[in-house]
Design a protein around this nucleic acid. Structure first.
Lengths: 147, 147
DNA sequence: TTTCAAATGAAAATTGTTTCTATTTATCTC
DNA sequence: GAGATAAATAGAAACAATTTTCATTTGAAA
């Protein structure tokens, strides 16, 4: 009887270590973007010896495998923060509570077309990220602290 | 008789130092994205004592003032690279020659609309960046080296 | 010219990430 | 279930980009 995460790791040819599973749990539980350090802080109580390099390595592996995705912090310091595991789509990121909403705007195909027709070249990838304040945070104005 | 760059700096309440002017010249001349270090390397022949912190400080100031813009390197290491000075628009970035083309796709407004109608919250900013290979680099295939 | 805030250089500190190596662990095979 | 083996890990150290600090210099306003 394998858990969801064990099956995922298996399919990526990654071993099911307790730490990896715990990382996936954290990312799955909290639907906010988390930095490598955030994840490390959450897990080092449970795993006294967990090191940041391990967190980085595993995030890298999980990202390569397409199990998680990442977004770019729009502030000066552009470290990357991670979450989610669906197919390619875009993100609306709340700068206050860090919650990430998927953006499934129907203009996607038109955008692609427009972009492609205006560019003489090959598109390899694109980044679309919308930064703002979510509905909930807008209401409790004043407490907004963008980090 | 003030030069273009002197007028720009003046309008931002930044002093017209030779180094700032030279930085603007470099960015204006080369229509490719440049890292702080790139700019530093280009200028330290002319200014023996130019330090990287000065380059960082000035880039920051020029960016804040809206005189230059920046793009995000899509590789793992997301340092930022800079260029251009037009109004808000998007970029097609050649991963090989570093050239940046402006993308003025007409679906912009539709995108904005779509995004806004799908999101309950306030949009503060967005990043749209298309990474690929430009027409010229596509032709001389094989020499492509993404850095 | 004098004055003063802004800009700068140089060194050091900070921060985020990666590498290295010896040890441990998950999984495969019997 | 008990080895065998390659992958995963901890811990320390290295690394790279950026920022801070502070004493000195410089641009531009009076």
């Amino acid at each position: 009887m394998k858990t969801k995460f064990e099956r995922i790791l298996r399919s990526l040819n990654l071993k099911s270590t307790p730490k990896r599973i715990a990382m996936l749990e954290v990312l799955d539980d909290e639907q906010v973007y988390l930095s490598p350090e955030d994840i490390w802080l959450r897990l080092k109580k449970r795993f006294r010896t967990l090191g940041l390099p391990t967190v980085y390595r595993n995030l890298e592996g999980l990202f390569e495998g397409g199990v998680i995705s990442r977004v770019i912090h729009p502030d000066r310091k552009l470290y990357y923060y991670l979450c989610r595991n669906e197919e390619h789509h875009h993100h609306f990121i709340c700068m206050s509570c860090r919650r990430v909403e998927d953006v499934r705007f129907c203009a996607e195909r038109e955008l692609q077309e427009a972009v492609r027709s205006g560019i003489r070249g090959k598109v390899l990838s694109h980044i679309l990220q919308i930064n703002g304040l979510c509905h909930a945070c807008l209401k409790k104005e004043g407490t907004v602290h963008v980090s």
